[in-house]
Design a protein around this nucleic acid. Structure first.
Lengths: 336, 336
DNA sequence: CTGAAAGCGCTAACAC
DNA sequence: GTGTTAGCGCTTTCAG
């Protein structure tokens, strides 16, 4: 069943059917009604491949995420999907699990499917895949890579602001020694989070101690190993900032496992504000990063390329806000 | 850049290029090598829309999930995606949030994109979308709907087995009064979970009490309201089985909020075994449903239609297994 | 073993 | 206001 069949049934030409479907105003209302009736009757659905082939654009955006198990990402996916569907566009989602080979494969799939742009929810990407996208005239928007260029935009997170308010919050509670648990980014990637932490600490008049900066991974296990390391230190911090909520949860688990508790022994601050942050015990003080806002910014960045994929991209920023719950409090006066 | 261009550059015809790309053995190795060289050189990527249009099949399967925020689903998505990518196929994922209008829109999107089949990770679906899929010759595989037909298969979960082992486990601990918190499925849908619970209870020689069966939703809030209701009952159960882990977590929260604790005051059992189950406190005893196995079964169900979308589908089953952690234990002898 | 050509379903340009 | 038609890029006969 195709447009020619519909045309025959409605006694018009296939061009008219196309015009009706695409809402062109040139068709006489009576004719359009007749065509629509036939379409209803036979439940006609146009063939998207033909449209894409003909039109050159697929009305599909690719969304690449590193780790779907981190609850942060499903919420972004959902928001992004909602924005696209509302505009009759589609999403091609892919997970890389931080593997380069999967990234390559993913980019290829996206090129084959003729996506109109790619949103990469990570800073980690080699130059080769970027060049492949540019070469095929597919705009790319990265997250927190802070590099723009032809066909390349970036959405950065305001870590600096978030870290600053977290440090201020901790200072007000009389914390002086604040540690950080993050993750090591890909070799070539600059770690804006850890830099934002260092800056916030020194801006707050506190000392940046290298031994207070621990590297794990973005998951719970990373927070656990980071916290275990901190517990080994001769001089102990009283508060711990984590690169994301899962890391913070890992830290909290180790704290409890050692018979200690938050916020009495250590104040813990997360980053993201995933649903889980408010469910665990103690409810996590965290730096919120709005998923709908992030998704909307990515969408805007992608569409702003319009039909010129070689336009020079822009740098966008998404704000953060501190959400104070119960994992932070005044430090014990006498150390354990 | 298309196959004709490649052909020109390699001094062959576009048919030969096509044959090389698709690994046909008829091309002479030397010719194939030359073609491949050119492909490498200009980074040629074939146009999937053209292939789909020509070939009639898109090598894409649709995956519809009700709620991406339930950690159960991202793990299924990931497994399903991995299976597809390995086979050079694509996934079109969509979320319905349990809304009928979104379901309709989703089905339409999938039809437009010419998916070769749809995996619906839910039992809730009206007849209209099903008919639309059948009408367009797109096989559908549902979850736990237990209805098959032309172009329609189903993957059911062995709730009965899972519930039975949970009840046995609780009985061994000397529980006699077991409650259930589930969710009300769509009006037309039969609730296999609650039926499996009732059967397991009576098979275990225990009494099925209607007031012990509470209806919430599939999320934490549903477990909370369900548990609040249970706390109001004159006669109290000593153990609670939940329709999924999130519900169980909700129940645990309410237990703690009332100054009670698990498993001392109430034993709690979940369903799914999401990552979270082992992270919360107390670690949740739960009935595991393997996501990779579920995804693989869906994939098999979809592919088994082959090129005949009107074949009568099959009923598949995925097993479950009890994972005992710390949220279950012997009941207090004297009730609070 | 390779090439020529038809045609998948759609849209846009141009006729009428 | 509506119809005719070319052609998007690919695969697949069918000739050679």
């Amino acid at each position: 069943m195709n447009m020619r069949d519909i045309a025959k049934l409605a006694g018009v030409s296939s061009a008219t059917v196309s015009n009706v479907i695409n809402g062109s105003k040139v068709v006489r209302p009576a004719t359009a009604a007749r065509v629509r009736e036939v379409i209803q009757e036979v439940r006609f659905v146009p063939n998207g491949s033909a449209t894409t082939l003909r039109y050159g654009r697929s009305r599909t955006y690719g969304l690449i995420i590193p780790d779907i198990r981190n609850p942060f990402f499903p919420e972004v996916i959902r928001s992004f999907e909602a924005i696209l569907v509302e505009r009759n566009q589609d999403m091609l989602m892919a997970t890389t699990d931080f593997h380069y080979s999967q990234m390559q494969q993913t980019i290829r799939r996206m090129l084959i499917r003729q996506v109109d742009g790619v949103a990469l929810l990570a800073a980690e990407i080699e130059t080769e895949p970027i060049e492949a996208l540019i070469h095929h005239r597919v705009p790319l928007v990265t997250m927190d890579r802070r590099v723009t260029g032809r066909g390349l935009s970036d959405v950065s997170i305001d870590y600096a602001g978030g870290m600053r308010s977290a440090i201020q919050h901790l200072k007000k509670l009389r914390h002086r020694k604040v540690a950080y648990i993050g993750r090591s980014p890909a070799p070539a990637t600059f770690d804006h989070r850890v830099e934002a932490f260092k800056m916030a600490v020194s801006e707050g008049g506190l000392k940046v101690r290298p031994e207070f900066i621990r590297i794990g991974n973005d998951r719970i296990s990373g927070g656990e190993t980071g916290m275990e390391e901190i517990l080994q230190l001769k001089e102990q911090p009283t508060a711990i900032l984590c690169a994301n909520d899962l890391t913070a949860i890992g830290a909290l688990r180790v704290i409890r496992r050692h018979g200690l508790s938050a916020p009495e022994d250590y104040s813990v601050v997360g980053f993201d504000d995933i649903d889980l942050a408010d469910i665990i015990f103690p409810p996590l003080t965290t730096i919120r990063l709005s998923r709908p806002e992030l998704a909307a910014t990515f969408y805007e960045a992608l569409t702003s390329f319009g039909t010129d994929p070689h336009r020079v991209g822009k740098q966008y920023t998404v704000g953060t806000s501190l959400v104070v719950r119960s994992s932070t409090g005044a430090p014990r006066v006498s150390k354990r």
